[in-house]
Design a protein around this nucleic acid. Structure first.
Length: 513
RNA sequence: GCGAAAGUAGCUCAAUUGGUAGAGCUCCAGCCUUCCAAGCUGGAGGUUGCGGGUUCGAGACCCGUCUUUCGCUCCA
């Protein structure tokens, strides 16, 4: 009974909503496109993933420290990083070919065509007249002058419109010039829109150009601008890393596929500073380490693959993605980039401050190279949740929905039930909860038959259920039932803590690395 | 952004050519019940995404808009 990937993905989304993992933002107001909220279970799962990453990075590596920097940064940061200039183009789409163009390029190309016509006139005249005075011809020939006036008009209109931010006028110009799409040959254009990757707001009570401030589109720059602070105060020696988790914001043109691409999302990044020339060694090392971290979650090796970037960004000398097989195909989960000294050098240049490291062995100062690991927390969440969700057919033809989350990451670690809600069983269950709740997230349920309660916990991914029965009152033993195998074993109440500690703690997961 | 499909109770879905919005599950209060969802009684929950229009009458038809999924596009 194969289920279509498309339908399966819909199941994941509705399961997330039904069991308190993810809600659409502002749902009662019809929602906000590509923004989602984590519910009571989602927040726990997300927190556990973050904690596992943080401890694996910061706690297990004595040369990596963590910071928590702010979302607002000095506007010059984004000039230095290249984000301000990279995404500021007026764009227009042709509705027939569905191709997107930069409006300024379309107009420039049109102007270039008119210039070609002038050149043709000049060439023709050159051949016709002996002792041809080109400058004189250009300034007096009626046809050339007409073309030249046209060009000047276009350029003036375009400049005025652009400076005034009048995008309707830019479109009108394209319409007036009867510019057609090179692919479809039609003039069926959308409106001109200005796209900027970054969200902006302003500081202070008065809004004007001077106090525009951006929400960071990536967390990496916080680490670069704090590089020297951390290195000096932490007495860090190369190679060392700075880790950070936090929100980033991108005004995506198309944000889709549930929490895979959101406008507000959370990154977990680590920038590893190394001696120039050693970066490839550490690049390879981190590729291996990060893949192993993912594999430790037990979602299945076959779901992961590396994708090496053939076309490198201007700052990188090596880059790859760890891709995961989502319900909609293999997509980027984590990026590992060798960023050279590009970022620190840019910040040196724009800030005028030296961001160098004094190497006592070589007795010289230099700007370190950087190897970055950057994973999307929300994507990680989706990878875990979508591979955990299963519809099982049991003996006897029953089906059950089970969320086989890695036990250490599950929102609720254990549920405690009284077999029936009388005869003192609820009281004993409560006692057990009181011994466990300081170390584990525990829940209690006495409604409906115990079988039904097991299934409820299966659906939210609780790895273990403890059931108190009449025998418990006599010999202090309970049954503990495994989510995945559905098998039960009987143990003494005092043994529960250690049993769980070995199976559902972040510590148990860290030890497996 | 373009194109396609969809939006009715918390969930999954009904509602004849336009004629009083229903069911199952869930949830809540009880009853019954000695370990894997299905027993009994009662109850809650909906301006049919939102706004207009056509009509005596709209969940259905028309227009706009929002949201979601899919394809294209985009993703230094």
């Amino acid at each position: 009974m194969a289920i279509k990937p498309e339908d399966f993905f819909k199941n994941v989304i509705s399961h997330c909503k039904e069991y308190g993992y993810i809600f659409q933002s502002s749902e009662i107001y019809d929602g906000l496109s590509a923004v989602y909220d984590y519910g009571q279970n989602g927040a726990e799962l997300k927190k556990n993933i973050r904690e596992y990453w943080w401890k694996a990075m910061v706690q297990l590596n004595d040369n990596i420290v963590g910071i928590d920097a702010s979302i607002f940064m000095h506007p010059t940061t984004w000039k230095a990083s290249g984000h301000v200039d990279a995404f500021n183009d007026p764009l227009i789409d042709n509705k027939d070919s569905k191709k997107r163009y930069r409006a300024d390029v379309l107009i420039e190309e049109h102007v270039a065509k008119i210039e070609d016509k002038i050149e043709k006139e000049v060439d023709k005249a050159k051949k016709r007249f002996e002792g041809f005075d080109e400058a004189m011809f250009r300034s007096t020939n009626a046809r050339v002058l007409e073309y030249q006036i046209k060009i000047n008009d276009i350029n003036n209109r375009f400049k005025t419109a652009l400076n005034a931010g009048d995008l309707a006028e830019v479109k009108q110009l394209i319409v007036d010039l009867e510019i057609v799409c090179p692919v479809s040959g039609t003039k069926n254009w959308t409106d001109v829109r200005q796209f900027n990757l970054m969200f902006s707001t302003s500081t202070g009570a008065v809004t004007d150009e001077s106090n525009i401030i951006y929400l960071r589109p990536e967390t990496a720059q916080d680490i670069f601008v704090n590089y020297l602070n951390v290195q000096k105060t932490g007495r860090m020696k190369l190679p060392f890393g700075i880790a950070q988790t936090g929100k980033a914001f991108r005004n995506e043109i198309v944000a889709r596929q549930f929490i895979f691409r959101m406008r507000e999302f959370e990154q977990m990044e680590m920038q590893f500073f190394v001696k120039p020339g050693t970066e490839m060694q550490y690049y390879e090392e981190w590729k291996t380490k990060r893949l192993n971290w993912h594999l430790s979650l037990g979602l299945g090796k076959e779901h992961y693959k590396f994708h090496d970037h053939l076309k490198l960004a201007h700052y990188a000398n090596a880059a790859c993605d760890i891709e995961f097989q989502f319900p909609f195909g293999f997509k980027e989960l984590e990026g590992i980039h060798s960023r050279t000294d590009y970022d620190l050098k840019q910040h040196e240049q724009f800030s005028g401050k030296k961001l160098q490291y004094f190497d006592v062995e070589k007795n010289e100062s230099y700007v370190p190279y950087v190897v970055e690991t950057s994973v999307g927390l929300d994507r990680l969440f989706l990878s875990i949740l979508s591979s955990a969700l299963k519809e099982e057919t049991l003996e006897g033809g029953d089906t059950r929905t089970v969320l086989s989350l890695p036990p250490a990451l599950a929102p609720i670690k254990v549920a405690v039930f009284p077999l029936v809600k009388k005869d003192g069983l609820p009281e004993l269950a409560e006692k057990i909860i009181n011994t466990l709740k300081f170390d584990f997230n525990v829940t209690y349920d006495e409604k409906d038959t115990v079988g039904k309660r097991y299934r409820r916990q299966d659906a939210i991914g609780t790895p273990y259920c403890v059931t108190v029965d009449h025998q418990s009152l006599e010999d202090n033993t309970v049954t503990i039932r495994n989510r995945d195998t559905m098998l039960q074993e009987r143990m003494n109440i005092t043994a529960i803590y250690t049993f769980l500690e070995e199976r559902v703690s972040i510590k148990s997961l860290l030890k497996s690395l």
